[in-house]
């Protein structure tokens, strides 16, 4: 599903160049649930941003579902993001003046899905994350866990190939974190490919594979026995 070869990325900071990713080789198969771990500054978020086409790579190659991702125009990148990827952010990134249902329907709007179908789908995914009764609420009327669940519903609404979660539990207490992870595990159970960036051990162990990043290189890549989040909920 995802294949990365010899990926390099550096940021220019004035006269200095900060080399963040120093040759990453990495492959994800369909249906995997991968945790990318590392301390802050290890380059894990940069890697996720590149995977999410939110940022561009300097060197190396990136293939997503057989499509080479290289030198994309803004418009093309937007279309690929819409088609291939769903994002879950640490700070939820919901549009604050839109209701939960409208937020979920937004990616479908950019897919030019007809209005009625959009609303139906949005409700369907809100139901899936257990927030159907909150469909008409604005984000500031929801708790942190609820917001993240809306964001997950939104990420899934476009039916992407890959879900990318950047510290999805970073802003949540442990109980809500486990609820969110439970949801992510269940989505993965249905065969969706999911990448989770985290620095929390327990969250990482709820995935099926852990990739450790340190100073811009992969230091460890192992399959783990998945801890089900359900038991903590």
């Amino acid at each position: 599903m995802i294949e990365i070869k010899d990926l390099h990325k550096s940021y220019k900071m004035g006269n200095n160049s900060l080399h963040v990713l120093k040759g990453i080789n990495f492959k994800v198969e369909e249906g995997e649930l991968v945790a990318i771990m590392g301390s802050s500054g290890s380059g894990k978020s940069t890697l996720l941003n590149i995977l999410g086409m939110l940022d561009e790579l300097d060197e190396g190659s990136y293939t997503l579902d057989g499509v080479p991702i290289k030198n994309l125009s803004e418009t093309k990148a937007a279309q690929y993001r819409n088609k291939f990827l769903g994002f879950i952010f640490q700070s939820f990134n919901l549009i604050n003046y839109k209701s939960a249902a409208e937020n979920v329907a937004l990616p479908l709007y950019y897919q030019k899905v007809p209005r009625k179908e959009r609303q139906e789908k949005a409700m369907q995914y809100l139901e899936k994350v257990g927030l159907k009764p909150w469909a008409e609420h604005l984000p500031n009327e929801l708790s942190g866990g609820q917001k993240q669940r809306v964001a997950i519903a939104r990420a899934m609404a476009a039916e992407p190939k890959v879900l990318l979660a950047d510290e999805p539990t970073g802003a949540l207490d442990s109980k809500t974190s486990y609820e969110v992870m439970d949801l992510i595990q269940k989505i993965n159970d249905e065969g969706n490919t999911i990448l989770v960036v985290t620095h929390e051990e327990d969250i990482a162990h709820m995935c099926k594979r852990i990739v450790h990043l340190k100073d811009g290189v992969i230091v460890e890549d192992k399959k783990v026995e998945q801890v089900r989040a359900e038991q903590y909920v």
Partner: peptide
């Protein structure tokens, strides 16, 4: 700006 960023992440083209 942030809203535009969110919209772009969700697949809004520059034209949109």
């Amino acid at each position: 700006t942030k809203e535009i960023g969110i919209r772009k992440a969700l697949g809004a083209t520059p034209k949109a």
